[in-house]
Computed example of a mutant assay.
Amino acid sequence: MPNKKYTIKDIAELAGVSKGTVDRVLHKRGKVSEKALNKVEQVIKEIDFQPNPIARNLKNNKLYKICVLMPDPKYDPYWVSANQGIIDASNEFKPFGISVEKCLYHLYDGSSFAKASQKAMDFCPDAILIVPLFQEELRQVLNVCRQRNIMVTLFDNYLEEFTGEIFIGQDLTQSGRVAASLLHKVVGKNDEIAVVHVDLEPHMELKEKGFVDYFNENSNDIAIITKSFSTKDTLHFKHSADNFFQEHPMIKALFITNSKAYEILEVLPEMKKMIIVGYDLLQKNIDYLKKGKIDFLIHQKPKRQAYLGIAYLAEHFLFQKRIPKKELLPIDIITSENVDYYIIETSKTS
Rank of each mutant, 00 (worst) to 15 (best):
E160I: 08
L308Q: 11
K227S: 10
N3P: 01
E266R: 12
D76I: 03
T7P: 00
T349F: 15
V187K: 08
Q50Y: 12
T226Y: 04
I333K: 14
R322V: 15
A120F: 01
A253F: 07
L133Y: 07
K273D: 11
N243W: 08
A127Y: 03
L129G: 03
A12P: 07
N57L: 01
V267F: 01
E217V: 00
F167P: 03
V267W: 00
A306R: 06
A127W: 02
Y342E: 09
M121L: 15
K252D: 00
I334Y: 01
L182E: 09
P95E: 10
D109Y: 01
V339A: 05
Y262T: 01
S81T: 14
V187M: 06
F319D: 08
I344K: 14
P95Y: 02
V196C: 03
K290G: 02
P330A: 12
L308H: 13
D48L: 13
K290V: 00
I224Y: 10
V17Q: 02
I276E: 04
Y75Q: 05
I130M: 09
F244C: 03
S18H: 07
K325W: 05
V25M: 13
Q246V: 13
E315M: 10
L107I: 12
P73S: 04
A82F: 12
A55C: 01
T153M: 12
I66Y: 02
D233N: 15
N61E: 13
Y307D: 03
F245I: 06
V152R: 02
I8S: 11
K45S: 15
N3E: 11
L154P: 00
L37H: 03
D23R: 04
I128D: 01
K185Y: 10
I224P: 08
S33C: 02
V178I: 15
R29C: 01
K232L: 09
S347A: 15
Y279D: 04
R29E: 10
L235H: 10
I286V: 15
S90F: 06
L159P: 05
H197A: 04
Y288C: 07
A82M: 11
K5E: 11
D213C: 09
G278I: 06
V277A: 06
Y78K: 12
T257W: 04
Q283E: 13
F167N: 05
R148A: 08
Q147W: 04
I343H: 09
H236L: 14
E217A: 15
H316S: 04
R177W: 00
V43S: 06
M271R: 09
